[in-house]
Design a protein around this nucleic acid. Structure first.
Lengths: 83, 83
DNA sequence: CTAATTTATTCGCCATAGCGTATCATCTTC
DNA sequence: GAAGATGATACGCTATGGCGAATAAATTAG
């Protein structure tokens, strides 16, 4: 996987794709993450600026995790353009 | 690099190490990230729960970025244990 | 088309992050 | 010791995220 996550929108997209890949509803993910369905919706949209712990909880529920790496240089930075 | 970042404390440690590696003071990092020195201090401590955009700004200032990946096996930890 | 499920959005409430500003303890360096 | 820089912490303030609960809106199943 190893998806680039530079913006809230990118993070939201990745989360949404991972959720759908598991065929979970937002409610199911919310329950696993200890959050509300409404919060999942907002996180996936990337509009509101979530709290760090909220994102961490969602990622954990999806069996994902953050990694911190040096910024990739040069080409192809914005992942949203691929969709 | 590719450092694991599952908790605010881990993230804070990574940020602090990256900052020191560049021989920057918290104030210098704060200025580059558009934040306050006090905020950098809190982020590095990982005590307070930062906002996502704050972390993203700090990472960008350090020329780092998040990547989202599948959870590495090993210590199976529950979501609740994170906080 | 209808009903059920899923997702998006709203309202009032509370908690808290980050702000400006400032202070204070360390630690270093003259 | 004095001066400077650094990092941690405080106060009041504002902004906003997430909550419960509810309700639209959109999507899917039948």
């Amino acid at each position: 996987m190893k998806e680039l996550a530079r913006t809230p929108k990118q993070i939201g997209s990745i989360i949404q794709r991972a959720r759908k890949k598991r065929c979970w509803s937002q409610s199911q993910l919310a329950e696993r993450a200890g959050l509300r369905q409404a919060t999942i919706s907002q996180v996936e949209s990337g509009e509101k600026l979530a709290k760090l712990d909220t994102i961490l909880a969602v990622l954990a529920a999806l069996d994902l995790e953050f990694r911190i790496d040096e910024r990739t240089k040069g080409h192809g930075q914005d992942i949203e353009e691929l969709f």
